[in-house]
Design a protein around this nucleic acid. Structure first.
Lengths: 203, 203
DNA sequence: ACTAGAAAGTAGTCAATGACTACTTCCGGA
DNA sequence: TCCGGAAGTAGTCATTGACTACTTTCTAGT
């Protein structure tokens, strides 16, 4: 809070929003600090006070991406919970997984950025945001224990597995290996198989 | 004959090999056509006759990546088949999936390139190479039908699902979200669950 | 209220790069 | 043999990220 009116107003926020638009429309390669500065009406050196280098911008974008994705999954899950209290656990997972892939379709370049190869450990802010997403996924999976879908001891592994699978489906879609529709169908298959497999293994 | 010949002889191949090394050691961002030219001992414009622009180089690298990954998975599967004829279908899938993730660990930047977001359809050569990989995966999954693990009608979907899952696990590992060891464990879980889930659903 | 100083922004510079062009060298096939 | 095109050279240009020195603005401490 207390975002006082300084020179530009709130350059950092504006840069991030513009950057997200560029990412969406022209991809990561088209992201230029100088262009962002031009469009924001500031000098080419201005972004430097908010992002030491281009990598810092990308990190900030990745962090926001994780937060947004987390939020969208939460919302999708809440819709299912509110809508039909008896929708079933599978329905919940399907909605969350579908929201994930939907995000990937709408923001392919951003998702690429979020899961891009890191030589070093990712910055703490990004790591935290990513952790939040996985925590949310874990929370959803927890509900399956109460529903008797699998033992609590399996939740951690199953959460990771589901996360990996939706991320993989997203990668297949955004890299144009399969269509978005096929991706959606895969989400269904994935959830179905996860639940039936977990039940069978737990028996 | 005292000086090096005007024509390099096999510039294209050399550039690709050097590029793969750079990719491995310093990542995609560090890939510069001019640097490659320098190290190959040719003028900065020389690569242009083999790769119209930087994107063409990246496409060629992605194509080779798919071919290599396909080859490594084939080899891993062959090892299992040769070793113990009665190793079981699960063992085969585990070996293939493990080889996939192993490739990701050894060539993270290359895998990123292979599954990077595409605005347009990928070039035909890349598409073909990727298709070969998925065909290989499908071939492995076919073996499960004879073994009675799942009906033939499920092979296509299960292949896509397994491919997506190993790709997702790879993404989690290369983006440092989980360790390589945890990735390996996830591979086991994924194969186990895929088979038990498929069996349960088929019943 | 005043002022020191940090934060935010300006302007200029530099080396590197990708993408072009015009030109040269060399190879192989009709 | 010769001729056309592939491969390579050399020069140029705009753009970019990263840096530096400097100025303006806000704020915190007294």
């Amino acid at each position: 809070m207390s975002h006082r009116p300084f020179h530009h107003g709130n350059l950092r926020a504006v840069l991030l929003e513009q950057a997200e638009a560029v990412l969406r429309e022209r991809g990561t390669d088209a992201l230029s600090l100088r262009e962002l500065a031009r469009e924001a009406g500031v000098s080419h050196g201005a972004p430097r006070s908010h992002f030491p280098d281009r990598g810092a911008l990308l990190d900030a974008l990745a962090e926001r991406g994780f937060l947004r994705l987390d939020e969208e999954i939460r919302r999708a899950a809440a819709r299912v919970r509110d809508g039909r209290a008896e929708g079933g656990h599978a329905e919940l997972l399907r909605a969350a997984a579908s929201a994930y892939v939907g995000f990937a379709v709408r923001e392919p370049a951003l998702l690429d950025l979020m899961f891009a190869t890191k030589a070093d450990e990712p910055p703490e802010a990004v790591r935290d945001a990513a952790g939040r997403l996985f925590a949310t996924m874990g929370g959803l999976m927890d509900a399956g224990v109460a529903a008797g879908a699998y033992p609590a001891s399996d939740v951690a592994r199953l959460t990771l597995l589901l996360s990996a699978t939706v991320q993989g489906i997203s990668a297949l879609v955004t890299s144009r290996r399969i269509t978005a529709a096929r991706g959606e169908a895969l989400v269904d298959d994935a959830v179905t198989l996860l639940l039936s497999g977990a039940a069978a293994a737990g028996r």
